[in-house]
Structures are given as structure tokens and as C-alpha cells.
Design a protein around this nucleic acid. Structure first.
Lengths: 154, 154
DNA sequence: AGCAATTTAGTTGCACACGATTAATTACCT
DNA sequence: AGGTAATTAATCGTGTGCAACTAAATTGCT
């Protein structure tokens, strides 16, 4: 309770992440327009291009998304022909999400398009790995705090 | 830095921003729970605690949000007693958004709560200013690209 | 085997975000 | 002054995100 002066910097860090995230979203929305893909749909495909098939839960833990977000998103991807959804025979609670032949064929084309757009961003005079490390440090801190549930007391 | 081969999801800058942004959102959602405020509502109040009143457009340019997002958000803030909305007399196209006495009274309490939560995050062994600078560098790059409309050709 | 606890995906409701459009108002221009 | 362009907020439609809940299937325990 001690400190009631607005802490500009911390708000700025949070707001900076918030703003950059939206800008990246817009950037990818443009880049992916030829394929009619949104950014969340794209990262879903990215995960599947790494490993397919996956259950909804496995996908969710890779992307930090729950079924409430994924189920409708996956239905849209299915309708557009990128993936198939089939209940597992071994465990009927699970749904296996697999890439279609169309998605496998389109992969390199999507990569090429995205890379050509990402190439436009200049990361000069910036230590990319250290930067990524700092972001992950913040991410880990936020995870630790929410695990500890320290926030909920008082 | 970028090459033509697909990069792994975890290595990607955009995914890191996307993930941290969601975690920050969750963090603030917890911190602001006593006030029944969401993070976008909080930053709206933050802007107004700096300058009140503001038109919807002015607010939007501070927060990078358009009226499609702000109008319903402001209606919710109004219903909860934080702000008032009144069409301007000078220019009836504009709507002046002003803090209520309630919001002015609650300001320090909100600050204290947020600060006590932010205190839990440890930014040890991290060059904070350089980090914030890198984030803004990425933000500027993304702005430059979307301004140039380079993405839309090809 | 029988039954409670757990796991999994889906559903619902709410709150952003934003593109596209609309309606009202104001500015501009000759 | 009068008509067109520009500005402003609101509205609509689509797509996330996520908390809370539901239904079905599986696991675990006795």
C-alpha cells in the first residue's frame, strides 16, 4: 500500500508489450492476407507444421490457448481446408488435429511470404538473442507470480 | 538475421510478444479485480488521469484504439461510474470523455494496488532502459513498414 | 466390478480489437 | 450561400481470448 504515485515505467513496459503485440498482429494480418489466415491461425499451423497430428490439449499447451479459443479457431481452419479434426480411437475424449495435404503443399509458400515480409524489419544494432532472452525473463517472472498466487492475498 | 528457412515458434519474436502480452493482461486482470476493471479499461483511466477531459479521438490516438473498440468500452466505464460522456457544445461531432469524482477519488487506491503487484516482478540483471528501447525500436520498425505499405506489393 | 475423481473438448457469455460502413456535423471552396 | 469533402463517433460483423460450466470418457481406488 505504501506507494501511490503512478509508476510510469512499469506501465510503459506493459503498454509497450500490449502495443507491439497489436502491431505484430496487424503486420501478420497483412502478410497472411493472400492465404486468408489470421495470426492465431498461422501460429496454429506453425505448431502443426512442426508436429502433426496433435490433440487439442497439446496444441493448447504449445500456444497457451484453451479449448474455448481453439475449438472455434480449429473449426474455421477445418472449413478452409487446412486441417482435419477426428476423435481419437484410443481415447475418445481427445480430438486429433492433423494437417491436410493442402496445408502440407502450401507450407513453403506461406513461409516464403512471411519471411519476405519479416525481412523488411530491420533489427540493426540490436542484440536479438539477448532481447529475446529479456522477453522470456519477463514471461517467466509473470508465470512465477501467477503460480505463487501472491496477488490474491489482500 | 532473418533467413529463408522456417523458424521455430519459440524462437520467434512475434510469438514472444504475443505471449507476454497475454500474460501481462492476465496479471493486470488479477491486480485490478478489486475494482472490476479490465486492462484496456485501466489504461483508458490512466490516460484520463493524465488528461481529462479528452475526446474519443484523442483517447484513441493515445491508446491506439479506434471508436469501434472505445465506444463500447467507454459505455461500460460510464455504467460503472468511472467516466462521463457528453457531446461537445462547440463541435457536436465530438464526445468529451471526463473522469467522475469517483474516479478521481479512487486514483491513488488503484495506483497503490497496481504498484504493489508490479513490485512482485523482479527485473534483476536486466537493463531496463535498453530493453524498453528495443521494444520501441521494434514498434517503430513495424510502423515504418505499414506506412510504406511495402507489404501490399507482390 | 463399481464409483468417485480426473481429464478432455465443447459450449456459453463477456470483453476486447478492428475493418468497413453509416449518420451527423463541420470545414472548405468557388 | 451552397454543395462537396472531410471529420467524428457510433454501429455491425468477424475473430480472438478466457472464465465458467457441461458432457463424455477414462483413471484410480477399493
Amino acid at each position: 500500500m505504501p506507494n501511490s504515485t503512478p509508476r510510469r515505467l512499469d506501465d510503459q513496459l506493459c503498454f509497450a508489450f500490449y502495443s507491439v503485440s497489436k502491431k505484430f498482429n496487424h503486420f501478420y494480418q497483412d502478410a497472411l492476407k493472400p492465404f486468408h489466415l489470421t495470426y492465431p491461425q498461422y501460429i496454429t499451423l506453425l505448431a502443426l507444421w512442426e508436429t502433426s497430428p496433435m490433440t487439442v490439449r497439446e496444441l493448447g499447451s504449445h500456444l497457451n490457448l484453451d479449448s474455448g479459443t481453439l475449438t472455434p479457431l480449429l473449426k474455421r481452419l477445418e472449413k478452409q481446408g487446412w486441417i482435419s479434426r477426428k476423435r481419437s480411437d484410443q481415447d475418445e475424449r481427445q480430438v486429433n488435429v492433423a494437417l491436410t495435404d493442402y496445408a502440407l503443399q502450401k507450407r513453403d509458400e506461406v513461409y516464403a511470404r512471411v519471411n519476405s515480409c519479416v525481412d523488411l524489419i530491420s533489427f540493426d544494432n540490436m542484440d536479438y538473442q539477448q532481447f529475446l532472452g529479456s522477453i522470456h525473463h519477463v514471461m517467466d517472472e509473470l508465470d512465477t507470480i501467477s503460480d505463487k498466487n501472491l496477488i490474491h492475498e489482500s
